[in-house]
């Protein structure tokens, strides 16, 4: 562990944790505008978290230690996962981070325990949420990994640092035009993984539609604050992957103070634009019936398979 990595550790984690709620707020604000409302203040997610930390934490009497441990586990897992996604600059070679499989399986670890807490309270809603979440995330998994398999065909590496290292040297889309197709597929992944319309509805607490919200229904107080922060960080990380692979301009190629500052500014601008795009996308589609969701994933899978065929037979 050298100084550069220590700096990377601190900056990357700090930026991820600090910006994650803001991007949640941006999506909400854009959705409100699209619906003709003024919407909540941009910083409302921060106020919510502060409020939740002061509130009482109620735990079901049926719940085991899994419910008590999962919020802390989720936030730890997401913070460790943050290290695999360079937000501002690359820390050089590390033996532990940057592996695509490790990154997505860390997310799966958080998901696994979150689904367990859904069953822990012994309520109907929680179980329903876990069941739907595990089913949907299982059929999403091939799409996620196929996208990175295709990226491995393009970049000849499956290491996130390696991919970002290549893209950040190049200009916009100068690496390979097939990345446009992959970018569209990756957008499907972001929408699905962050529990947004048309896969899931983040605004509702209605048993017909909810998936993610049903799982965290039994959490309250600081536990809920931790779960929501973890969820926000997950969204930020996926968006950062999208930005750094498909829109890499502005990413610091050297870890100097000036370029890192520029990198931060460009990341901030790009992530806010992407969050706004997600908000607009959400406003333009309706919630799909649960059994129609695989069809939505199929759209993404189609794009990826098309790209693979282009790559394999070129």
């Amino acid at each position: 562990m050298n100084w550069l990595f220590a700096l990377y550790f601190v900056l990357n984690t700090a930026v991820a944790v600090a910006l994650a709620p803001l991007l949640m707020g941006v999506v909400k604000k854009v959705k409100a505008w699209a619906q003709g409302r003024r919407g909540q203040p941009l910083l409302q997610p921060y106020y919510n978290l502060a409020k939740l930390l002061r509130k009482e934490t109620v735990v079901s009497s049926n719940a085991s230690w899994v419910t008590r441990a999962t919020p802390y586990l989720s936030i730890s897992v997401l913070i460790v996962a943050t290290l695999s996604v360079p937000l501002l600059f690359l820390p050089g070679k590390t033996s532990a981070f940057g592996n695509v499989i490790l990154f997505f399986y860390l997310l799966a670890l958080a998901n696994f325990f979150m689904a367990l807490t859904g069953l822990d309270g012994g309520s109907t809603f929680g179980g329903m949420g876990s069941s739907r979440e595990m089913s949907l995330s299982a059929i999403l998994e091939p799409l996620v990994l196929l996208t990175f398999l295709t990226l491995a065909f393009v970049f000849k590496t499956f290491d996130i640092f390696g991919i970002v290292g290549t893209t950040s040297q190049a200009g916009i889309f100068s690496v390979d035009p097939v990345l446009i197709l992959l970018g569209a597929a990756f957008f499907v992944i972001i929408v699905a993984e962050t529990a947004r319309l048309p896969v899931d509805n983040p605004e509702t607490h209605l048993e017909l539609t909810m998936v993610h919200e049903a799982m965290v229904l039994e959490h309250s107080g600081k536990h809920l604050a931790l779960m929501e922060t973890a969820h926000a960080i997950k969204q930020l990380l996926l968006m950062a992957l999208f930005i750094n692979i498909f829109l890499p301009f502005g990413f610091a190629t050297q870890p100097t103070a000036a370029s890192v500052a520029l990198s931060l500014l460009s990341f901030l601008a790009k992530s806010i634009i992407l969050a706004a795009a997600i908000g607009l996308f959400e406003s333009s589609v309706a919630k799909l019936r649960l059994y129609r969701v695989p069809g939505f994933y199929a759209v993404g899978t189609f794009l990826v398979v098309l790209t693979i065929i282009l790559e394999v037979f070129r």
């Binding site: 930390l53 509130k55 802390y72 586990l73 033996s95």
Partner: peptide
């Protein structure tokens, strides 16, 4: 490294939030 970091962040978060907010056990 991953495991130790997980453990460290877990311990830090749990320690930092140990006295935050009241806790109650209640029926589902």
């Amino acid at each position: 490294v991953v495991g130790l970091l997980l453990l460290a962040v877990y311990a830090l978060t749990a320690f930092a939030l140990r006295n935050v907010g009241k806790r109650r056990t209640c029926e589902t």
